[in-house]
Amino acid sequence: MEEVAAGEKSNLAGVRHILLVLSGKGGVGKSTISTELALSLRHSGKKVGILDVDLCGPSIPRMFRVQDNDVHQCDSGWVPVFVDQDKSISLMSIGFLLEKPDDAVVWRGPKKNALIKQFVADVAWGDLDFLIVDTPPGTSDEHISTVEALRPYKPLGAILVTTPQAVSVGDVRRELTFCKKTGLRVLGIVENMSGFVCPHCSECTNIFSKGGGEELAKHAGVPFLGCVPLDPQLSQSLEEGRDFIQEFPKSSAFPALTHIAQQILDGTSQRSS
């Protein structure tokens, strides 16, 4: 597998940094963070790709409102779906390969692994500053296969997403162990859905309690990248596939999201200098 990078020109040769977004828990906002991170990085003038390896529940196409697009073939492989005319964000997801959007992908491990290998090898990303890999919850086939397939390309590391509750933090602790065992660097932990500001009385309620992510980061000795509050404008943007970073700079989640992107950018510039 290692010889891929050395031999013929790989499809990932033009990709500068690869990062994974992981969480042991489902529904904590992996795809949300992947999406907003991509939008924030684009805002800073970067070219970004997202590879969605959640094969049973792909959310990325919908979050960019390109769910009706198809993937085409070119000489070097699959052409990703571009979000805009400038081709500043490109996406690959099983969502683009399904005949009907409601089709269930009822696959066991080996079939999922084969597609992930193909996703890593055969997508013609071209030149990218960042490739963000959005994953399903867990520490199983998709994760093992993705990390194995990406290993020759030396991924930058992983961002772990949690919500503040103990139930979610517990799953993320297991994900930290996964990173340690597979030798994947942890870039940091993001606490999502950290509180909700009532639009009627401005009272902030910590629906899912608060502070679990930061505590975990401290406990594990990894960076804490920040808290993203529950923000109706953010979930609305994701439902409608709008650019939250462009449209809602005054909303409560905006500073948190751009701060996460900035820390990633700072980390990479330190690395290259």
Binding site: T139, S140, K181
Partner: peptide, 13 residues
């Protein structure tokens, strides 16, 4: 331990 990850592929699960 609560940190134990079950890193298993399908057949083992």
């Amino acid at each position: 331990s609560p940190d134990d990850a079950v890193i298993w592929r399908g057949p083992k699960k």
